[in-house]
Design a binder for these strands. Structure first.
Lengths: 338, 338
DNA sequence: ACAACTACTGTGCACGTTCACAGCGCGGTT
DNA sequence: AACCGCGCTGTGAACGTGCACAGTAGTTGT
């Protein structure tokens, strides 16, 4: 299968021990924690490590410690999302950076198709990683059940509908964030406030709609509510539907910035001015929000805190603690579109 | 350091051997390749694997095979790029998918700061991965030298300036692509064709400018050339400079779609119509190209082929073959902006 | 009949590390 | 004098796998 293998000249812990004039055990102790090692031995070991260029073999360490020292970042969404919606990139980048500081590498895996899901599931069950960061908005994916059954620590991003209390997660306070936005639109004097929601099988789809209803009550009539799928095209389609059903609307709360960008295009094409005729509010405060024309008023998700919490919750579970949840506050960011 | 460890109930190859009534060696042979195994033994092993739920321990396997069975995807750019510029996401997604089919996971690592570079370098030197996919446009990063010295297989994305012939790489034919675009602009009757380049220490910055000069010759005067940094803001700044220096320009070839999006905004704000007053051509054909107004004429980079070649070149090197290069053709995509 | 070959199987070893245990010298207490 | 605890150290035993080697039985060739 492989070609001729080069003679491995990598120094082992034996070489370091010999160079330092101590035993393997002392070298190991000196490098891991350093308890019960005399200053003289410690110095000799460190010097020997420097001269030999020794680096511990991760496979050998994993074999005995039963720890992979790595975690998986699993995306169950269609892969296209990874590069259309900046949210996923931000989450990935945040988690990677957070974990890199702890010297824990991140394995990127996808599970959007049946084949991929099986592969990923088998891979994780093989013990290749110590834990899983699961980014999956849609519910009903059997991967979460499989992971839970295999007993591996998991942290979801966003409330895992149907698994609350069983699976750890970190999420923004979607409902309260939606309330902030709709109240803001009202305070601007808007009375016919429509909404474009996320898919009803996602926490963002459910919670942000609930926040919208909290504020509008009976004013939240069915003609003012259209469903999107978090894609730009979905936002365009939903906005078209809304204009058709309620041409007199004077504001739209859109459940994601990407969909809001699509909605802005449709509003522009219909001849309406934003915000003069129609105010538009987004959700996420992703990089898109500042590049639309006009710049988007939106609800900032604290992504940095979310990724930090995801990592913390995962490491806690790896240490043996039970799964917990973290819900983080959002912030209204007012720009030119409202 | 860790809590109380659960009693490992994971079945080992011993358990499978016992259940199948054969020896460990036979199980190993049956699962790897299956040469010299009797049909009866093979079936017994497969059945035992099913009943026990056995999955090979990757650490133990790596320890003996001296292979990590994983590769690293290393990004040396500022991290912000990962989620602002869709190109990186596409490369990452493509490589991940390509490798997933071979059951090779991808470790995502960054090396934008000094600390990160050292960490990544040390990590790779530890033998945690079999090879490196290096996405680094800027030259002069010492990581490439470090990796080469450590003898690990590396494939760069884009020609590694100053390392040609030493490091394998896959890249689009930037120069020829730029020629295609500038010739297209000329064929539309444009005569004052400006360009916004990439940074001069990147292959795209150098080659695409060279292609522009190939076509324009003496018409490529200095006032028509502005430098960008592949960011949207950089595109805006460069476009502003160009309009200031050459207000009579009637076309711009921009070395990336993201910068072109920025340029479009500036042109719009200056009251110019695209393409009536100024034609705009981009480069990449990233997802941005279809979401600008008007949609962007651009040069398509064959990202799928690039990632496929990167993976192929890497696997080849891991098998012991010398580093090679792959240069792939581009394609002009005409939309509304020219 | 004997040797040689083929197809298959079992066993020992090595991979490089961590961990538990035992041993050591030393000073202080019983 | 015997004992104990303490800080430090070396040693053997895993961890689970793949591979080289030797060995077996059956078939073929001379």
């Amino acid at each position: 299968m492989s070609g001729n293998r080069a003679p491995r000249n990598r120094p082992t812990i034996h070489d370091v021990a010999a160079a330092a004039g101590v035993s393997r055990g002392t070298v190991s102790r000196a490098l891991n924690g350093g308890r019960n090692v005399s200053p003289a031995a410690l110095e000799a070991v460190l010097k020997a490590v420097r001269t030999t260029g020794y680096v511990a073999n991760p496979a050998a360490r994993s074999l005995v410690t039963q720890r992979a020292h790595s975690v998986a970042f699993v995306l169950t969404e269609p892969q296209q999302r990874l590069f259309e919606d900046p949210n996923f990139s931000i989450l990935l980048q945040g988690c990677t950076q957070e974990l890199a500081e702890l010297d824990v590498p991140v394995l990127l895996m996808t599970a959007s198709t049946e084949v991929e899901r099986k592969r990923t599931s088998r891979f994780i069950a093989a013990g290749h990683v110590d834990g899983v960061l699961l980014v999956s908005s849609h519910t009903g994916n059997p991967l979460l059940d499989e992971l839970r059954d295999s007993g591996i620590p998991v942290v979801a991003c966003g409330k895992p509908i149907g698994h609350e209390g069983q699976v750890a997660y970190a999420a923004a306070d979607d409902r309260s964030g939606a309330r902030q936005m709709v109240e803001h639109l009202r305070s601007r004097g808007r009375r016919r406030i429509a909404t474009i929601t996320g898919p009803p099988d996602t926490p963002g789809g459910v919670e942000r709609l609930a926040g919208y209803r909290d504020v509008l009550g009976a004013d939240a009539t069915a003609d003012l509510i259209a469903h999107g799928d978090y894609s730009r095209a979905g936002g365009e389609a939903a906005m078209t539907t809304l204009l058709d059903r309620a041409p007199d609307l004077d504001a739209v709360f859109v459940a994601s910035d990407l969909m809001a960008a699509g909605a802005l295009n449709v509003l522009h094409d219909s001849g309406r001015r934003v915000p003069d005729d129609v105010a538009v509010g987004g959700f996420d405060d992703s990089s898109i929000a500042t590049s639309t024309r006009p710049a988007l008023t939106t609800v900032r998700q604290p992504f940095q805190r979310i990724t930090r919490e995801m990592v913390r919750l995962l490491l806690e579970q790896i240490q043996g603690e039970p799964p917990a949840a973290s819900i983080l506050p959002t912030e209204l960011v007012v720009r030119a579109s409202t």
